[in-house]
């Protein structure tokens, strides 16, 4: 089991004076969701984790050794994002060889196999591929990287349903075979929530939540009923979000679901609803 650690890493937000540090640990054998709104700092965090960005404070460690410019650690972490760090005018098949030359543990066979599975033409230039095809190629590379920590940054750009479906199949297959960890940084929670087991939520450069899915599901719920009853109930709860529809009120609460109460309906909420409630402009945990 390997561990990738962020130790008091400085996060700057929008050139403001708001500076805060983030500490978090990632272990192989888990699939993490790094969730948050656009501009929350997810890409920055992944760049720090993969050694593409030097932290102005704190450090990143892999199995207790700093990763910065560390040739042993860096191949074990792979960042898959929208920036193309390879010659985009190269043909796909040649590009696979080029990447193999750059990365010692990369598998060209697997990459070629996955490109076929994703129906990618191998003999055309990368730049002539469609948006979705470009994304699919990068995912094929990521899954063949041989890394222990694969960091996916908004990996669904332009992907059609069939390819997404194939991607999950391959991802879970790769995940189950080796001891790896996957991190998904995305705002599209609904798409990914079923395969995550750990969640981190970023808001304006701050880590506002770091918990297991299981614990979160057990400690969040929705209560609805007549406004007066809901208001009375909520006065002693950690309320994240309230919605009103006429005389009917619905509130999302952080905490264990209580036993049945007269006049109120309790139900579970999805991860995406929870993330929405936590990162809401007007509500959210920062204001609770």
């Amino acid at each position: 089991m390997s561990r990738l650690v962020l130790k008091e890493v400085q996060m700057e937000f929008e050139k403001s004076n708001l500076q805060n540090t983030i500490s978090a640990e990632f272990e192989t054998g888990h699939i993490y969701g790094l969730l948050g709104r656009n501009g929350a700092g997810k890409t920055t965090l992944l760049n720090l984790l993969s050694g593409r960005k030097y932290p102005s404070g704190g450090a990143v460690f892999l199995d207790e050794k700093p990763i910065w410019e560390n040739p042993t650690a860096l191949p074990k972490i792979y960042y898959c994002g929208n920036s193309k760090d390879f010659p985009t005018t190269m043909r796909v098949s040649l590009l696979i060889n080029w990447i193999a030359a750059m990365r010692p543990v990369f598998s060209s066979e697997k990459a070629t196999q996955l490109c076929e599975k994703f129906s990618l033409p191998q003999n055309v230039r990368f730049s002539s591929l469609s948006t979705g095809q470009k994304t699919a190629f990068q995912l094929a590379i990521a899954l063949s990287s041989g890394a222990e920590f694969i960091l996916f940054d908004e990996p669904f750009l332009g992907l059609d349903t069939n390819t997404r479906h194939l991607f999950y199949q391959e991802l879970l297959s790769v995940f189950s075979k080796g001891s790896i960890a996957c991190l998904f940084a995305t705002h599209w929670v609904e798409e990914i929530e079923s395969i995550l087991d750990e969640i981190l939520i970023l808001e304006k450069g701050k880590l506002i939540l770091n918990d297991s899915c299981e614990h979160l599901i057990q400690n969040s719920y929705q209560v609805s009923g007549p406004s007066q009853l809901v208001d009375r109930f909520c006065s002693e709860q950690k309320v994240l979000r309230i919605q009103t529809l006429g005389g009917l009120k619905t509130a999302i609460i952080l905490g264990p679901q209580p036993p049945a109460l007269e006049g109120l309906t309790f139900s579970k909420i999805s991860l995406s609803e929870l993330v929405l409630a936590l990162t809401d402009q007007e509500g959210g945990i920062s204001h609770a």
Binding site: L172, S173, S176, I195, L196, D197
Partner: peptide
């Protein structure tokens, strides 16, 4: 079926 096959079929985390 293995946990891998089941997780792939339902698109869920293998631990689940």
């Amino acid at each position: 079926p293995s946990t891998t096959e089941i997780s792939i079929t339902f698109k869920i985390n293998p631990a689940t």
